[in-house]
Design a protein around this nucleic acid. Sequence first.
RNA 1: UGGGGGAUAGUUUAGCGGUAAAACUCCCGGCUCUGACCCGGGCAUCCUUGGUUCGAAUCCAGGUCCCCCAGCCA
Length: 568
Amino acid sequence: MAPTEAAPLEAAPTEVGRDFIRDIVQADLDAGRTQTVVTRFPPEPNGFLHLGHAKSICLNFGIASEFGGACHLRFDDTNPTREEQLFIDSIQRDVRWLGFDWGEHLHYASDYFEQLYAWAEHLIRAGNAYVDDTPPEAMRAQRGTLTEPGQNSPFRYRSVDENLDLFRRMRSGEFPNGARVLRAKIDMASGNMNLRDPVLYRILHAHHPRTGDAWSIYPTYDFAHGQSDAIEHVTHSVCTLEFEDHRPLYDWLIEHLPVPSRPRQYEFARLNVSYTVLSKRHLTRLVTDKHVTGWDDPRMPTIAGIRRRGVPAAALREFVGRVGVARAYSTVDVAMLDSAIRDTLNPIAPRRMAVLRPLKLIIENYPEGTTETLEARNHPDNPDAGVRSVTFGRELYVEQDDFMENPPKKFYRLSPGKEVRLRYGYFVTCRSVEKGPSGAVVALRCTYDPASKGGNAPDGRKVQATLHWVAAADTVPAEIRLYSHLFNRPDPGADGDALADLNPDSLEVLSGCLVEPALLDAPVGEAVQFERTGYFALDPDSQPGRPVFNRTVALRDTWAKVQAGTNR
RNA sequence: UGGGGGAUAGUUUAGCGGUAAAACUCCCGGCUCUGACCCGGGCAUCCUUGGUUCGAAUCCAGGUCCCCCAGCCA
């Protein structure tokens, strides 16, 4: 039977049930509760975006594109005392780099200040909000505790007219910071602290990056967020778990205001990653206290730092996809990130040779004063990547780690009497070593087998190891920066101050590295594989003829594990 | 007896009454002109105690542990 017409008329089966939020969206669509899905990514522009934001960005923009909807980028700029244009710019750059497009939908909560203000008056008129003159400390005392109900403010029963008058005067700038606030009149005895007459507006004589000095009062997050969602017709307002307690307030405001749409808030567990921190507070401190060189320090878990390290956006998306979305508190092993980076880079990264810690190798039977050109593949599995020329000669450099004078049993690499292959080159055998005054090996004296040119011996004999190398006659000096975990424990700060857990060795700068000349053409930020070592990307700090490379991620190193095991 | 959430391998996640699935890590082995990649194999008292059921990670009841909330931050 040839079921020629069996192809379903429906488009490819929608990928349903990938996580509980997508389940909800699908169900809303199926039930007709939602016509077009609208999500939003709502950062406050007070810092750089990090891995945690990447999860939220992929979720919100991902849902929008999977369900044929839209995702807005909205700046939650309701607190001018901590927000800067620098962050607004960096956030847009990072979201774009991650591969997402908000189209026409670049919004700011500050765009809605006038509307929000009108709604505040609406609440006052309905007797649902009041101006409170209680000083902050007294207000805190009146709020009660987790186990005791709060006390009503003495200002709670002001007349609508008085409230309106005072609120307008707050707006006009008549009162100093902190003199009064506008509060929702809900329930001072609620078990949910957010419902104990939450503050909706506060007086802030501060210059706003976008509205300048037009306002002397600013809405709080709670008063701005849900209403902004409603104005933009956001259908699914996805945020992290710590806002769960705010949902009843979110809903209360939506229900008491004449908003144009009915958004719903859903929460998921925020991302935590081992050996790093993802709180703005900590990241800001790392930058301001100069524990790192900046927000884009390659050790930082920021998008900018990760990008500078050489990680492609696709790797971040892959990582986020592997991590999943759920409501359970969790900390992802940073090894999962590394794995996603390697898996993304392996099929596409061009191969090059670079010697990080050079050790001279002299081929005694190679004709002096001559060199030759060999062909090296740019990718082992992809012939389309082509080949390049590398220079071979009598004097070469190999990796110090690739030689041991007294090797342990499982050491495959070079040692006196041992034969190995130089990648794309010849078989060489170590005959003797030269030592410096301190007794350290400074050069290896070897012989080569001219018949093994290209990497294979005609007699079919095998070698256990293939080493990368660089020719003394044709090499470029480079600086290479090796990065490791910023913190030296998987849960920084678990015992107190996270900064006390900083890893003092998170950056190792290698200055005497030698790389093949083809690397001079490497584009900034795009990782290449240094064979047998790892993925590296050119850093903007590079000078002409003096490249600087960042290690994006190391290759898996089974030998290092074996060694670590035997040393124990 | 404040309110709100969460517990599935070392780590994330799937499972939605039919006898635990995937990725990462780790261990063993194979392959290899990268000790990479790749390919085999291994690694789970489903927090706990009871109950319902022919059958429970899934349903019910009671415990335990963990997280969030007392900003005029978001």
